[in-house]
Design a protein around this nucleic acid. Structure first.
Lengths: 211, 211
DNA sequence: TCCTGTGAATTAGTTCACAGCG
DNA sequence: CGCTGTGAACTAATTCACAGGA
């Protein structure tokens, strides 16, 4: 069904294409050419066609792609056919932003639990969810049938928390802590580091200034 | 001074190396081998040496790198020698999280202004900053001598805001809006899309399940 | 004609492997 | 020795270019 090994960059682009396909759909467009999709997504038409070709051929020569079936197929490829249950580990400001980020629920990610270590936070309510004690992490994950964990803690406790998450069966982690997490084969980690993003912009600024 | 064209992936790793060099420094380590740095950063020693080699040779054969001078040099390369003044466009939850994210100020990024369109938010105080009217964007940028803008608005108004930012001289933008921004030559945009990150995890989950 | 699908060519990025210096 | 610095080899990713179907 799914081909051997797909590059991360390809998967990211598929998610982006899907977003614009849904926009085309809302606008009542029935078909779209690789070129139109490429312009929206900031890439080239050849790239779009190549990305899609890894999964089959969905287009009509001379015409383009049917918007609705292609969007359906991309959702299937990306595993968005069912809602994913997500837990947030750490209940700081970033967690608060994530909990009520509408972009997640709109795309099928449902946040079912938030845990923290700080007794001052435990018991408080965040967007309808009561913050629970991280001591009960295993129970919370099992009860919530959580598939994906979002780690928004300081660097210090991150690895120990990941070890517990892995032990209780989590295989997908979005990590905001600035550490390289060690996980066994079969567990996926995506790192997001906002300071690093700003530092690459800082580099770009000074590289330009030096020219 | 700076070499021709450095890959984005290399710049990101330099920022990560710097983080661990600072940790080594705090621990009183005087020197560090490429191998130790590589382990922390989740890469290989050859990659570390290659990344550094683009900018010169800083190491001592048989010994490794002197922690403090290498950290200094990386800060210089990354343009972190002076503090960068940052404005946040959009004052939602994510903006609130960013404003008091200590990781930014710790690395020399100072948030000097927050603007929003919503009259209900304008005038409110966020981590010591009064939220200003986006109508005054140009004035705010000039007054604050802002170098970097962080865009945390919905997709709709994003492009128009970027046009105004570019017109008033901004050349570095961190974009959280799910659109591909059009900017002229000489302006850098880094996109962060949290939904896309989760979707790549969703893909990984279903790709594994299909095996 | 228009636009897809895809091998081939190209370019970019990573890893290897070893000479050379402390 | 131990570990850096770096050309060369390799692998991955992107772009080209065109045959072929609607």
């Amino acid at each position: 069904m799914l081909p051997r090994k797909i590059a991360d960059s390809t998967v990211r682009r598929l998610a982006i294409y899907l977003r614009f396909l849904e926009e085309f759909q809302r606008q009542g467009q029935a078909t779209v050419a690789s070129d139109a999709l490429a312009q929206r997504a900031g890439t080239t038409s050849a790239q779009v066609r190549k990305d899609l070709s890894f999964f089959g051929s969905f287009g009509t020569r001379g015409l383009g792609y049917d918007v609705v079936p292609l969007a359906d197929r991309l959702r299937e490829i990306l595993g968005l056919g069912h809602r994913h249950r997500v837990a947030i580990i750490g209940a700081g400001r970033l967690a608060a932003a994530l909990v009520d980020y509408t972009g997640f629920s709109a795309r099928g990610f449902e946040i079912v639990a938030v845990v923290d270590r700080d007794p001052a936070r435990i018991g408080a309510v965040l967007a309808g969810l009561t913050i629970e004690d991280v001591a009960d992490l295993e129970h919370v994950v099992r009860r919530g049938e959580v598939e994906i964990a979002i780690l928004v803690t300081p660097a210090g406790p991150a690895q120990a928390l990941v070890d517990r998450l892995v032990a209780v069966g989590i295989t997908a982690i979005l990590n905001f802590a600035p550490v390289q997490l060690q996980v066994p084969e079969g567990v996926d980690v995506k790192n997001v580091n906002l300071a690093v993003e700003l530092e690459t912009l800082s580099y770009a600024l000074s590289a330009r200034a030096a020219t």
